[in-house]
C-alpha cells in the first residue's frame, strides 16, 4: 500500500509538472493572437496555416507575417526564456541560502545589470551596448559579492548575502547618481523605462544574445538540482554528507548568475518573478529541488508570458513589466497563500 502511495504521489507531481509545461507552450501560442494591431483570428489562422503548409497560396498582406513572426513570436519566446531564468535562479538561490525570502537578485545581479544598462544608455544611447554593459556589470556585481563574502571565513553563506547587500546598495546608489546627472529629456526616459523592465523591443537578436548564458545557466542548474537539496542542509551537514561546499556553491552561483544576467540584460529590471514563482512551485509540488527547479522555470515562463500579454493589451500604451509582475503577482500570491495556508515552506 505504501509503494502505491509513493507511485500515486509521483504521478500526481508529474502530472502537475506536465500541466505547467503545457501551459507555457499554450501561452506562447496564445500570445500570437494578442496585440494592438487589429488582426482577426481568421487572419492569424491563415498566417499559421501558410507557414505549416508552404504550398498554400498566400492571401494576406506581408505586414501580417511581420507581426506574427517578427514581433509577437520572438516576444513570447523571449518572455518565456526570461521569466523561466529569473524563477529558476530564484529557486536555486533560495535553496543555497536556506532562505525562502531570497530572490534571483540576492547577489547584486539586478542592481549590477541596472547600472550597466544605465551607463550604456548615457554613453552610447539605447543600442546593443546596453546588453553588453548590463550583462557585464551583472556578473561583475556577483564576483564582487563573492569576494566580499570570502573576507570572513566563518559562515560563508551569511557573508555572501552580506556581500550581495553591500554590492546592491553601491550599484543602486550609482544608478541614482547616473539618473541624477543624465539628460532629463533624452536619456532619463529610456533609463526609467529600462529600469522598470520591458519586452517591447524584443527581436530575434535579443534571443540570440541571451540564449547562450540562459541555456548554460538553466541546464547547469537543472543538472545540479539535487545538490541544492543538500546545500540547503547548511555547510556543516552538507560537508558531512560528502559535498565539496565551496566548489558546489561557486558552480551554482555561476549558473544562476548567468541565467539571471542573461535575462535581465534583455528585459530590464523585472522583480518579483524570482521570489514568488519558486514559492508557487513549492506549494504545488513540494520542496524537493529535483522537481522544483524545472517546475520553477516553466512557472516563471508562463507567468512572464501572461504578464507581457497584459502589459501590451491592458491600456493604450505598454505598461512596464516590473509594475505588472508586482501588481498581478502580489494578489495572486496572497490567494495561493490563503488556499494552501503556506504549506510548502
Amino acid at each position: 500500500m505504501r509503494k502505491g502511495h509513493t507511485v500515486s504521489d509521483f504521478k500526481r507531481k508529474s502530472f502537475i509538472l506536465f500541466l505547467i509545461i503545457s501551459m507555457t507552450f499554450i501561452g506562447i501560442f496564445g500570445s500570437l493572437f494578442i496585440g494592438r494591431y487589429p488582426l482577426t483570428w481568421s487572419d492569424i489562422i491563415k498566417v499559421l496555416s501558410t507557414a505549416i503548409n508552404p504550398l498554400q497560396k498566400k492571401t494576406y498582406p506581408d505586414i501580417y507575417n511581420t507581426i506574427i513572426w517578427k514581433i509577437r513570436l520572438p516576444r513570447a519566446i523571449l518572455g518565456a526564456m526570461v521569466g523561466g531564468s529569473l524563477a529558476i535562479s530564484g529557486a536555486a538561490f533560495q535553496g543555497l541560502f536556506r532562505n525562502p525570502l531570497v530572490s534571483s537578485g540576492i547577489l547584486g545581479v539586478s542592481s549590477g545589470a541596472s547600472f550597466g544598462a544605465v551607463l550604456a544608455i548615457i554613453l552610447y544611447g539605447q543600442n546593443y551596448m546596453v546588453y553588453f554593459f548590463a550583462f557585464g556589470f551583472a556578473l561583475l556585481a556577483v564576483i564582487m559579492s563573492f569576494f566580499i563574502g570570502q573576507i570572513y571565513h566563518s559562515t560563508p553563506t551569511v557573508t555572501l548575502v552580506l556581500g550581495g547587500v553591500i554590492v546592491s546598495s553601491i550599484f543602486s546608489a550609482l544608478v541614482s547618481f547616473a539618473k541624477f546627472v543624465a539628460d532629463p529629456f533624452e536619456k532619463l526616459p529610456s533609463i526609467t523605462f529600462w529600469l522598470m523592465g520591458s519586452l517591447a523591443t524584443a527581436q530575434y537578436k535579443d534571443i540570440i544574445f541571451s540564449i547562450i548564458p540562459i541555456s548554460v545557466g538553466v541546464i547547469g542548474l537543472v543538472a545540479l538540482r539535487w545538490q541544492i537539496n543538500i546545500l540547503s542542509m547548511g555547510d556543516k551537514e552538507a560537508q558531512a554528507l560528502g559535498i565539496d561546499n565551496l566548489l558546489t556553491k561557486i558552480i551554482m552561483v555561476i549558473f544562476a548568475s548567468l541565467a539571471t544576467a542573461g535575462a535581465i540584460s534583455v528585459c530590464g529590471n523585472v522583480g518579483w518573478v524570482g521570489l514568488v514563482m519558486p514559492h508557487i512551485g513549492r506549494m504545488l509540488l513540494g520542496n524537493d529541488n529535483r522537481i522544483l527547479i524545472p517546475a520553477s522555470f516553466f512557472l516563471g515562463s508562463f507567468f512572464m508570458i501572461v504578464v507581457d500579454n497584459l502589459s501590451r493589451s491592458l491600456i493604450g500604451s505598454e505598461i512596464p513589466l516590473g509594475i505588472l509582475t508586482a501588481l498581478i503577482g502580489g494578489p495572486f500570491f496572497v490567494y495561493l497563500l490563503k488556499k494552501t495556508k503556506g504549506k510548502g515552506w
Binding site: 537539496n229 543538500i230 552538507a238 554528507l241 558552480i251 524537493d288 515552506w345
Partner: peptide, 23 residues
C-alpha cells in the same frame, strides 16, 4: 528550513555516493 519529506531528507544521505551532476 524547507519542509522536505522524511524520504527526501534520508535520501540526502546518499550524496557521497552520487556524482555532482546526478540525482
Amino acid at each position: 528550513t524547507f519542509p522536505y519529506t522524511v524520504e527526501e531528507i534520508v535520501l540526502m544521505g546518499r550524496a557521497s555516493h552520487i556524482g555532482m551532476f546526478n540525482s
